[in-house]
């Protein structure tokens, strides 16, 4: 009976138009990767960037996209102006200061030495950068990427 209820709940959830990406903590990635290898989606944003919000609200909230990200990737979200340092894949990166963005954001996110928001990066299972886009990734582009990743 309990199982049936769970299944029913799951069914209801999957029907809901509202979908969202389950972002995980940077610290968790290492443990999770040790259990199961998956590629990583890293979304770099700032809290004042409109296109970033647009990315989240029009693309990541799309049912298909959210499902693909949640099932096939570890999803990470980084505010480039975050002042706290964080550890990602063994290395500790310093937080943002008045002089620069978060060290991890600078390291991974710059495009031709400039910074654009948002920047979306995909690391493959071997944790190498295979995609990087400065600017909005539309649903269509995302679908194309998914085709190529296959």
């Amino acid at each position: 009976m309990k199982q049936l209820l769970l299944i029913f709940q799951f069914f209801l959830l999957s029907l809901a138009a509202f979908a969202q990406v389950d972002w995980i903590n940077f610290e968790e990635v290492t443990t999770q990767l040790a259990e199961k290898k998956k590629p990583i989606v890293l979304f770099i944003h700032t809290d004042w960037c409109k296109i970033c919000k647009m990315q989240e609200e029009t693309v990541f909230s799309d049912e298909i996209v959210a499902k693909q990200i949640n099932n096939q990737f570890y999803a990470l979200k980084l505010n480039a102006e975050e002042k706290q340092s964080l550890t990602f894949l063994g290395r500790t990166y310093a937080g943002a200061t008045a002089n620069r963005y978060h060290e991890l954001a600078e390291y991974l996110g710059k495009s031709n030495k400039e910074f654009y928001f948002p920047t979306l990066i995909i690391l493959n299972e071997q944790l190498e950068v295979v995609y990087k886009k400065a600017g909005l990734v539309s649903k269509e582009e995302w679908a194309e990427w998914m085709e190529e990743m296959k």
Partner: peptide, 23 residues
């Protein structure tokens, strides 16, 4: 050693980037 060079991967630059209000 820590790499201090920015990881310069080939990047796709879109037109829809960047401005709003702080939190």
């Amino acid at each position: 050693q820590y790499s201090n060079l920015d990881l310069e991967e080939v990047v796709i630059t879109g037109t829809m980037k960047e401005m709003s209000k702080k939190n």
